[in-house]
Design a protein around this nucleic acid. Structure first.
Length: 136
DNA sequence: CCCTGATTCGC
DNA sequence: GCGAATCAGG
């Protein structure tokens, strides 16, 4: 294989075009090794293995769906936080009240009032007991 | 295993 | 100087 000026020029052009050594090699009728070897020998700009480097344009904004800071998940509950469930445990966005609970009670004042309708009323206890685990 | 380029090494 | 072989990264 004789590297004539034409051949070298073609090589440089194709190389500058961004073709891969394999492509240039096929077009030049040589192996990619010859191409890269000659290219390196010529002092062409070597790309540090420009592997599949494709840029993904970020056209629009980045809708970061972050949960509200006030949201209390199960892990946020502590001994004195209101465990009044907000929403359906099976649905996303479910959380707990999280307000300061009454000592001795699992709920805050307001929710405890709803939970224990009247101190002694054994009739309708609307709220489901906030037992962890599964319930269905 | 495919691809890429880089370097080594015998011719 | 040439390029296959080998190496190295993805």
């Amino acid at each position: 294989m004789v590297w004539t000026d034409e051949r070298i020029e073609e090589l440089k052009v194709l190389w500058a075009e961004g073709l891969t050594t394999g492509e240039i090699g096929k077009r030049l009728g040589v192996s990619k090794n010859a191409v890269v070897g000659k290219a390196h020998r010529l002092g062409l700009k070597g790309r540090p293995s420009p592997i599949k480097k494709a840029k993904q344009p970020r056209p629009a904004a980045a809708p970061a769906k972050e949960p509200e800071p006030k949201m209390k998940t199960l892990v946020d509950l502590s001994a004195n936080t209101c465990r009044w469930p907000i929403g359906d445990p099976r649905e996303p966005g479910f959380h707990f009240c999280g307000a300061p609970a009454i000592p001795g009670k699992p709920y805050c004042a307001e929710h405890a009032a709803v939970a224990y309708v009247g101190a002694g009323s054994n009739s309708h206890k609307v709220p489901p007991p906030p037992r962890d685990g599964e319930a269905a």
